[in-house]
Nucleic acid binder design. Structure first.
Length: 574
RNA sequence: CGGGGCGUGGCUCAGUUUGGUUAGAGCGCAGCGUUCGGGACGCUGAGGUCGGCCGUUCAAAUCGGCUCGCCCCGACCA
């Protein structure tokens, strides 16, 4: 492609709307332009990059045996009502009516549609297992779109769905997808980590996220430096480092006038916040719930809801406290007869702790479970924090940030049962499909690659996803010799199947260098004055390595470099 | 939804506090010339209903009300 004929509107200055580096560079490099908050146009360069990423995903999906199909973005409400998610999804789903007043939505995901297809078209165990996928736009009306395409309202996603006859089969299908995802991210040149995650609204038991490691990531991951345990903070588990052995003391009520927060009470009693136990009162669809957690930890509502199988879980509003004879700031487990009480596992080990006395300006000290009160059950109800130990190997957990680019779920029968999607097994009995679903945010992946691969001059595309692998830069615009030679390289390299951007613009060398660096083409062929001695320079964008070579060797050398670099990324197709 | 900020040529911004000529700068864009290994220089030029509506005033980018859009923090969320 000739640069002069391509729309690549690069910007010198950083548009004020962009906060993170990938967003800034995507705007500056002429990859995207904003249409509305969280809605973007992909310009020609962006479109080429998307196609490169999609091609890698297709190759790996197909290699793993998945089949591509294409489902619509516009979906009728009926299917969502069948699964129950029309009500569950909330304002994040973009809903609309057709001219006849029928309800539709723009699909935020496609479990319902795929289940509809499969229940109609697949009847026999002989047709299983099957995995279907598509690459297609999704719509989610995010509360706060941000970071450019990283959290957008319209975005491109690869979503795959597996159908098996039993749980065993699901595990096999899931593993195939897991492996495919690992290959995809490796080929995109990414440093990533698979972590245990919560399955949220999608549902199912086991789920793992593929996290691209980046400071700007929105997710926090805890991992063990010794074993390979890694989990999203939303469900990461750890254990308390210190366990204090103390003799049990008799409980005693003491006055704590005006001291209601953990910090105030701890200061007043001259103890650490870890000596206190907070009693949080939640409103749930099963009634009120009291959750006891150590004073120095934060409640993790994802874990609580998961452990106790709750759909609704909201902290009791302060104005409702009086309804149940509760006193804000002085709630405690003793005397809460009508409220189900559970406790974080860390509380189990605590001795002689402090709790609210359920009366104004008073706390109990030296409280102990089973002596002073009882709880129904213990489980992990809090967030891990730095300093906690890995439950497997008792080593301190470490923390890092990541960008969630992929998520794989073992769904089970949630959708097949709700939507009556059955097949006949060997015995002729009807059984629900056992499903898995697997997503990759294609547009988010693009941003994640930039987050991990850029420098002060611009983007550094890995060879596998670069919009062009090579850029040819003749420096002297009125040199016929340089122009002829550039065109020769351009045609010869293209004939080899390489992707070439030929900068034929009549601009100064500085502009060409700056744009080539900014848009991140990984290999540059620089044709300058030394061409009259038959010498040409080639430069690797990533390392800034420069080689001056004979013009006759350029084509061969470039082909070698591209092939070698693609192989490094585990991409044999180049 | 709560809090904060912003909206002036394609981009970055000044001007708004204290209303008053033809609304400015840099970058970008067009033409000509000189340049040509890291965003060159000179000259000439095009381009703006100051987000929108209503109001106050002799007079509004500037003051008031409403409204729309965008960004950041939070709550929330695959």
């Amino acid at each position: 492609m000739k640069y002069s004929e391509m729309l690549i509107p690069t910007l010198k200055e950083v548009p004020s709307e962009a906060e993170v580096v990938s967003h800034q560079l995507m705007l500056r490099a002429g990859i995207i332009r904003k249409v509305a908050a969280g809605v973007y146009t992909f310009l020609p360069l962006g479109s080429r990059i998307l196609k490169k990423i999609e091609a890698i995903i297709r190759e790996e999906m197909n290699r793993s045996g998945a089949q591509e199909l294409l489902m619509p973005a516009l979906q009728p409400a009926e299917l969502w009502q069948e699964s129950g998610r029309w009500g569950e999804y909330g304002p994040e789903m973009i809903r609309l009516k057709d001219r006849n007043g029928r309800d539709f939505c723009l699909g935020p995901t496609h479990e319902e549609l795929i289940t509809e297809i499969v229940r109609n078209e697949i009847r026999s165990y002989k047709q299983l297992p099957i995995t279907l996928y598509q690459i297609q736009p999704k719509f989610r009306d995010e509360i706060r779109p941000r970071f450019g395409v990283m959290r957008a309202r319209e975005f491109i996603m690869k979503d795959a769905y597996s159908f098996d006859l039993d749980e065993e089969g699901l595990k096999v299908s899931y593993q195939k997808m897991f492996d495919a995802y690992s290959r995809i991210l490796k080929r995109c040149g990414l440093e990533f980590r698979a972590v245990e995650a919560s399955s949220g609204l999608i549902g199912g038991k086991k789920s793992q996220e593929f996290m691209v490691i980046a400071e700007s990531g929105e997710d926090i991951i805890f991992y063990c430096p010794k074993c390979n345990y890694a989990a999203n903070i939303e469900l990461a588990q750890g254990e308390n480092k210190v366990i204090l052995e103390e003799n049990i003391l008799p409980m005693k009520k003491i006055a704590t006038p005006g001291k209601s927060s953990v910090e105030e009470v701890a200061n007043f009693l001259n103890v650490s916040p870890g000596k206190l136990v907070k009693t949080l009162i939640y409103q749930t669809e099963k009634g009120l719930l009291g959750v006891l957690i150590p004073g120095d930890r934060a409640a993790n509502e994802t874990k609580i809801a998961l452990s106790l199988d709750l759909k609704e879980l909201h902290l009791l509003k302060e104005e409702d406290f009086t309804k149940y004879n509760l006193i804000p700031g002085f709630v405690g487990p003793i005397g809460l007869n009508d409220i189900k009480l559970v406790a974080d596992k860390n509380v189990k080990k605590m001795r002689n702790f402090v709790v609210g006395a359920n009366e104004k300006d008073a706390h109990f000290i030296n409280t102990n479970i089973d002596i002073d009160f009882k709880v129904e059950s213990f489980d992990d109800f809090t967030f891990v924090k730095l300093g906690d130990l890995c439950t497997n190997c008792k080593v301190e957990l470490k923390e890092m940030r990541g960008i969630e680019v992929g998520h794989v779920f073992q769904l089970g029968k949630k959708y097949s049962e709700a939507m009556k999607a059955y097949f006949s097994d060997q015995k002729g009995e009807l059984k629900p499909f056992v499903m898995g679903c697997y997503g990759i945010g294609v547009t988010r992946l693009m941003a994640a690659i930039i987050e991990q691969s850029h420098d002060q001059y611009g983007i550094i595309w890995p060879f596998s996803v670069a919009p062009f692998q090579i850029v040819i830069l003749p420096l002297l615009t009125d040199s016929l010799e340089q122009k002829k030679r550039s065109e020769k390289f351009y045609h010869e390299l293209e004939r080899l199947g390489l992707e070439i951007l030929y900068d034929d613009r009549e601009v100064t060398p500085g502009v060409k260098f700056a744009d080539a660096d900014l848009i991140g083409i990984p290999l540059q062929i620089i044709i300058g004055k030394k061409l009259n001695q038959g010498r040409v320079e080639i430069k690797l964008r990533k390392t800034n390595e420069k080689f001056e070579i004979s013009a006759d060797d350029v084509v061969k050398k470039c082909r070698e470099i591209v092939q070698k670099e693609l192989e490094k990324l585990g991409d044999k197709s180049g």
